[in-house]
Design a protein around this nucleic acid. Structure first.
Length: 943
DNA sequence: CATCGGACTTGCTGTCAGAATT
DNA sequence: AATTCTGACAGCAAGTCCGATG
């Protein structure tokens, strides 16, 4: 597994993710799977009411501010611990108690807040500004340092540290202040836009003066361009011829810094060669000039500029979207109140379990023991839709018939002996309130019942469903005692686990019957599996990361909420008795069978088909085809964005740099997010605080360190050496911005995707992820597979290739519980096996002697022994492979990339080529999903 | 064109059944 | 048979992208 490409010493970067599949290095740059979840964001609605005041304040103390912000910037990395804790919380009941008490401390506050909702926002403002000034400083620093130094090993320890609580609330406040910072800053920026504007405008003017239009900055004009650049920003600007050495150097670095992984190195090199040549010509030489000097220079320039609406930061152009939002907020609220109070508990549910076709089924089922593997050997013949001609009329189906969704089972009230106590006194709750209480009581073990936000949200929503009299009494969550309920549910769960075989069998049959009836639909004459035909049961919402809505009540969904979609001429599904559907429609432009709007986030949820279905499969296939098309023009696109790094237009430069990240690092696009969601970012929404620039780091030049929370609040940490020009551009983008400002202030996903679509039809940011993932897999497979390895070794190679992709895409998982332990066990096993082999070897020797002059019988004994030894040895290697594999996989999740990013045909082809059974790579569901690929890809398929 | 919401994909985690082990 | 371990999967949250809308 050699990774390094030593020659140019450039990209030996452990920081480069792709390399890390390399077992032992996996931790090097901290990608090591300890992603942390948390958000910097918190509830800040209505903030701008106070905006002006705030702004003034801020201005007056801009200095202090700055320092506290600096700290903030690092806070994200400091939160690992929290996440880890979160993850492991369930095993730490001991520390939990402690936490609880902490929590209690905060409850008073909460209550307070709750009761004066109207003044809540203000209060928060205050609070956060206080926090900003007082709290965040010392603690954050502390944590920051800690984090900085915590290696992966340390982190293991950290996660068990008990200082968590102290920090939790801090974090929150802290994050809220930060958030505010960010927003306010943006506002400030808005007000500053004139100067911004003029900055760009001047540039524009200049370029016009030079009789050059923005878009056609040709190389021929480099002289002119240079001078232009020089005027408007020296970073990119003055280009001086370089010595040959430098040129060479750059070539090397350009190539290597773009390499996705070792095996790709070569191809990358060639990919980037051409453009590098250009770069070198124009490479700036002004690096020696101190930044500040350059800044001055530029800022002077800016003043002279004129106007140009076009090149203005996006947020300056944005219209206030607040009002609308507020409105919809209100609507939401109103609605949910109504719902909660009026239609809260209608008995739902039908649980018809039809057994019509059971006869057929039972035959398959009797040898059930065989489990999934044996049963359902492709029941009906497969619909080979991929062999049919497809038409592109946007119609998703011609005929669609199904039986509607299955509703969550109704609430079962508590038996009489299970009590709820308020303030020490027993209290019988109305069923509505009791149900919601039950949600909470079931979660008592969970860490999030220690979170302030969670508890507040829960309590608020809970009170909404209480009766008038209950509401009068129950005013403090602290005084609620759910213990009895909790015990009851634990007990119930325990009992369920201990169900007898018969009971289990019965349940299973029941379930299968349900699937049989509701789990399939008829689409264009074919029977296809539905993905999720069960409606989500009510419960408490648990967002990921530091979600402001965690703990809110997720209402029970009724037929009255559901829109049914099916063919007009189909048998329309029956609503449960006494109910009716919200609507029945016949929309063949969409693929869903039913939908409803969920009350917490106000989003539409759908019932759709299983991934094995044609509808999904075709889309999937198409996705990979798009990625392959990208492969054909990727060189051109790369060249182009490299050119754009030199563009005179800020927006184009930003776009080009962002695209570079998307391409090279497989970052997500990064849409803007609402404030009532956890604060996570992607490429276009990166903020200044999320990257730091190092002219030199660990022996590498121009290193950009990314540290932010991405989707699902998974931490992305990566140290990436970039090309100098990118580095300079980033410096430019970051000038005069505070940590909370957008890094790419003239860019958003819409702009990016629009541009991409112009480059290639159907191209969007996420295609790069697919493309680079699949491409990497193919490269890695080529590189890592030896035709004469054993199957186990080949599989290891596959997993490693897969892992390289997972690392690229930053697919992480929490370290499985008891990973340590299971590793130890494995080791023991290996040792035992080694012993056995030694023993067997001795025996073989003995037998060999006997066999020499022995009879036939002794010879067979010898043969037998030899075979045994052979087998043992195989087992040993297998175990050893398992060991490395598992260890390397500790924090890396392979599933997501396998399922969503890797062209299955690559894997299929690989299996066919090297004689690896497909089942070793894909389990049953995966094989179902990728049936099309398994069928169509031959051993020679290349991506 | 900004914004919103709908539709669909992507992604992590907890649970549970079946396999492995004792 | 009991217990532990593990992979598969359900579940559902959270992204991306697009087109309608004003």
């Amino acid at each position: 597994m050699e990774v390094e490409n030593g020659a140019n010493g450039e990209d030996s970067s452990p920081s480069h993710k792709m390399k890390e599949y390399n077992s032992d290095t996996a931790q090097v740059n901290g990608i090591n799977g300890y992603s942390d979840k948390k958000s910097h964001k918190s509830e800040h609605k209505d903030k701008h009411r106070d905006k002006d005041r705030e702004r003034d304040k801020e201005k007056s103390k801009s200095k202090e501010h700055k320092s506290s912000k600096d700290k903030d910037r690092h806070s994200s990395s400091s939160k690992d611990k929290d996440r880890d804790k979160e993850r492991h919380s369930s095993h730490k009941s001991s520390s939990r108690d402690k936490e609880r008490s902490d929590k209690d401390k905060h409850r008073d506050k909460d209550k307070h807040r709750d009761e004066k909702k109207s003044s809540k926002d203000k209060e928060k403002e205050h609070k956060s500004s206080h926090d900003k000034d007082h709290k965040s400083s010392s603690k954050d620093k502390e944590r920051k340092d800690k984090d900085k130094h915590s290696s992966s090993k340390d982190k293991d320890k950290d996660r068990h540290s008990s200082s968590k609580d102290k920090h939790r609330d801090k974090d929150k406040h802290h994050s809220s202040s930060k958030d505010k910072d960010r927003k306010d800053k943006n506002k400030e920026r808005k007000s500053e836009k004139e100067s911004e504007k003029s900055y760009d405008d001047e540039r524009e003017k200049k370029s016009k003066n030079h009789s050059k239009h923005e878009n056609d900055v040709g190389r021929e004009d480099s002289a002119r361009e240079d001078s232009v650049d020089e005027d408007d920003n020296k970073l990119i600007i003055k280009e001086e011829p370089e010595s040959q050495d430098e040129v060479d150097d750059k070539n090397a670095s350009a190539a290597s810094s773009c390499d996705y992984n070792l095996s790709q190195f070569k191809s990358d090199e060639s990919r980037f060669e051409d453009s590098t040549a250009d770069v070198k010509q124009e490479e700036d030489s002004d690096e020696d000039l101190p930044l500040s000097a350059r800044m001055e220079h530029t800022s002077v320039k800016r003043k002279i500029e004129s106007d140009d609406e076009d090149d203005m930061p996006l947020n300056a152009r944005k219209k206030p979207k607040k009002e609308k939002k507020e409105k919809s907020e209100k609507k939401k609220k109103k609605r949910s109140v109504e719902d909660d109070e009026e239609e809260w508990d209608r008995p739902v549910k039908k649980e018809k379990i039809k057994k019509e076709k059971d006869s057929i089924k039972t035959e398959n089922e009797s040898p059930k023991k065989g489990g999934r593997k044996k049963k359902e050997e492709e029941p009906q013949e497969v619909w080979k839709w991929w062999e049919e001609e497809k038409k592109d009329d946007g119609k998703k189906w011609k005929f669609l018939e199904h039986k509607g969704p299955v509703f969550a089972p109704p609430y079962e009230p508590l038996p009489d002996h299970v009590k709820f106590y308020y303030d020490g006194k027993e209290m019988k709750l109305t069923p509505e309130a009791e149900e919601v209480a039950s949600f909470y009581s079931k979660m008592l073990d969970h860490d999030y019942t220690t979170k302030e936000v969670f508890n507040n949200n829960f309590f608020k929503d809970w009170r909404k469903v209480m009766s008038e009299s209950e509401r009068k009494v129950i005013k403090d969550l602290k005084k609620c005692n759910f213990k009895s309920m909790h015990a009851y549910y634990m007990d119930l769960a325990e009992k369920n686990r201990n169900r007898t075989k018969e009971e289990k069998q019965a349940l299973k049959e029941k379930n299968e019957a349900l699937i049989k009836e509701y789990g399939f639909c008829n689409i264009d004459g074919h029977k296809e599996k539905i993905g999720n035909f069960k409606i989500e049961p009510p419960g408490l919402f648990r967002g990921r990361g530091e979600h402001p809505k965690m703990g809110m009540l997720k209402r029970r969904v009724e037929a009255e909420d559901i829109i049914i979609n099916c063919s007009q001429d189909s048998k329309i599904p029956e609503p449960p008795p006494g109910h009716k559907w919200k609507e029945v429609r016949h929309d063949d432009n969409v693929t869903w069978l039913a939908s409803w709007t969920e009350n917490v986030q106000n989003q539409v949820k759908y019932i759709m088909l299983n991934p094995s279905s044609k509808l999904k499969g075709e889309k999937d296939w198409q996705k990979y085809e798009t990625a392959r098309r990208l492969h054909k023009c990727i060189d051109k696109i790369r060249e182009e964005y490299k050119d754009d790094w030199k563009s005179k237009e800020m927006r184009i430069r930003q776009r080009a740099v962002a695209l570079y990240f998307i391409d090279k690092l497989a970052l997500r696009a990064g849409n803007e997010k609402d404030e009532d969601q956890a604060d996570t970012v992607g490429c276009c929404s990166l903020r200044v605080e999320h990257i730091s620039l190092h002219k030199e780091k660990d022996g590498k030049e121009y290193v950009v360190v990314f540290d932010f929370l991405g989707k699902d609040s998974i931490r992305y940490y990566n140290e990436v050496p970039v090309e100098k020009r990118v580095f300079k551009n980033l410096q430019l983008f970051m000038e005069h911005k505070s940590p909370g400002d957008d890094l790419f202030d003239r860019l958003n996903t819409a702009i990016m995707n629009k541009h991409l679509n112009e480059l290639m039809e159907g191209l969007t940011a996420k295609v790069f992820r697919t493309y680079n993932a699949s491409w990497t897999l193919q490269q890695q497979l080529d590189k890592l597979t030896n035709a004469d390895d054993s199957v186990a070794e080949k599989i290891l190679a596959y997993n490693r290739a897969n892992r390289a992709v997972a690392i690229l895409c930053n697919h992480q998982r929490s370290v499985p519980k008891g990973h340590e332990k299971s590793m130890e066990k494995l080791k023991e096993k290996i040792d035992a096996k080694k012993e056995a082999i030694k023993d067997a070897e001795r025996q073989v020797k003995d037998a060999a002697k006997d066999a020499k002059h022995g009879s036939v019988k002794e010879k067979t004994v010898y043969d037998k022994k030899k075979k045994m030894l052979q087998r043992l040895k195989e087992q040993l290697t297998k175990l050893e492979i398992q060991e490395t594999d598992r260890d390397e996989n500790k924090t890396i999740a392979l599933g997501t990339s396998k399922l969503n990013y890797l062209d299955p045909r690559i894997s299929v082809a690989w299996c066919k080529k090297y004689g690896v059974p497909i089942e070793k790579i894909y389990n049953k569901t995966q094989r179902d999903k990728f049936r099309w690929a398994i069928d169509m890809a031959g051993p020679d398929y290349v991506f």
